[in-house]
Design a protein around this nucleic acid. Structure first.
Lengths: 214, 214
DNA sequence: GAATTAATTGAACGTTTGTTTTATTAATTG
DNA sequence: CAATTAATAAAACAAACGTTCAATTAATTC
């Protein structure tokens, strides 16, 4: 046999990506074989090589597009407003929603970094660093404006990211909590963690400090 | 050749474990081959099977002992005192110290769960659940005593564990911060996150509430 | 409707994998 | 010092791996 009736390159490539994300998330990149992936797509292993030159390149593509989508989602969600607390709220909300909606892809991007070659790894880490920098800048601005209490910007950024990314480890849709409820709880924790003050509170604190300074 | 001069079963087994933890942490369980591991130990692959019946059993052993050591470390660190804030402090401190000291083993235990068969996975998850239950009980007691502000015990426990386990992702000894400094920062974040109050603060809050109630 | 291009199969390639078996030597015991 | 046990090497196993290649058919173009 050869070309099958109704076969379509675009559809096949999309099916490969989808199946790859799910299989790799479940079994790990090294454990998934090209034949297993092909079977899931309903195709022979050789057909995969029409779309991805190597197994690693398939992984690289999945990760790169996931990270770029994450950055794009943040670009779209970032508030025009430059209030650090509002930006922090948007960051956490966007992060949780994005990750919950793409649990499998996130799993792949977070767990399979070591299966990348040096160059590919560097490229992915660069994207990741750009994303984390966004959070650090929010925390720094907030601390300078006196609306956030942040001892160490770098550590706090890592702590928050670990905390809010961790949602995907236990969260399952259609269970006890909705995405909105989870987001609300994590937002509350983030705000307490960073000692976030509303503008009113912040004014009171400033006035108190001025009084004591006399 | 056969038995080598100075060979000793106990030493070889220990060497296998140590090498396995490092290699698996770095390359992932599936990516590490028995021959690679044997070479690291300085032995032929067949010799590994004198100590571990299969590759998976080696992984299972490493994970089981790591989790048991974690539970044992907490048993030893748990304060006699039953003040929730003190217990939370001890939990976080112990967790960070333990994980930083055993970065590689923690990596293995957290990342390679999917390489276990059903039965082995169940056994490891049971140990993990027992550990997490300790934190939930601290949070619940603290909330009931009014010294902690916890919206959702389960979510908060997960958030804290993700946050403090995440230290191993970026922490490198001999860098900017010592273990004690990192622990202090994370403790501060944990206390803010849980709205921890000292006993004095808690008394004030209670008195305020009583006043308002009149 | 012939020529061309796109999509896929089926078979094969050389490696590498986890594991087993057998033989051999070192250390220990009686 | 002979017998036994402990620890390993060396070679072999079938199975599975990522990947390549040639052949074949479906769809598209001219």
């Amino acid at each position: 046999m050869a070309r099958t009736a109704g076969s379509d390159g675009e559809r096949t490539e999309a099916a490969i990506r989808d199946a790859a994300v799910e299989l790799i998330a479940r079994y790990g990149f090294e454990a998934v074989t090209m034949r297993q992936l092909a079977a899931e797509v309903g195709v022979q292993a050789a057909a995969l090589y029409r779309y991805f030159p190597t197994k690693e390149d398939l992984l690289r593509t999945l990760m790169k597009e996931h990270m770029e989508a994450l950055l794009a989602a943040w670009e779209a969600a970032r508030p025009a407003n430059d209030d650090p607390v509002a930006r922090l709220t948007a960051f956490v909300s966007n992060h949780i929603r994005f990750h919950v909606e793409r649990r499998h892809a996130t799993h792949v991007s977070n767990m399979e970094l070591r299966s990348l070659s040096r160059d590919n790894l560097t490229a992915i880490l660069k994207l990741r660093a750009a994303y984390e920098k966004e959070l650090r800048s929010i925390l720094r601005d907030g601390a300078e404006a006196g609306v956030l209490e942040v001892d160490d910007t770098g550590l706090t950024a890592m702590a928050i990211i670990q905390m809010i990314t961790g949602v995907i480890v236990w969260f399952r849709p259609d269970e006890r909590l909705s995405v909105d409820e989870v987001t609300a709880t994590y937002l509350a924790m983030t705000m307490r963690l960073t000692g976030a003050r509303t503008k009113t509170e912040e004014r009171h604190v400033r006035q108190g400090a001025e009084l004591r300074a006399r």
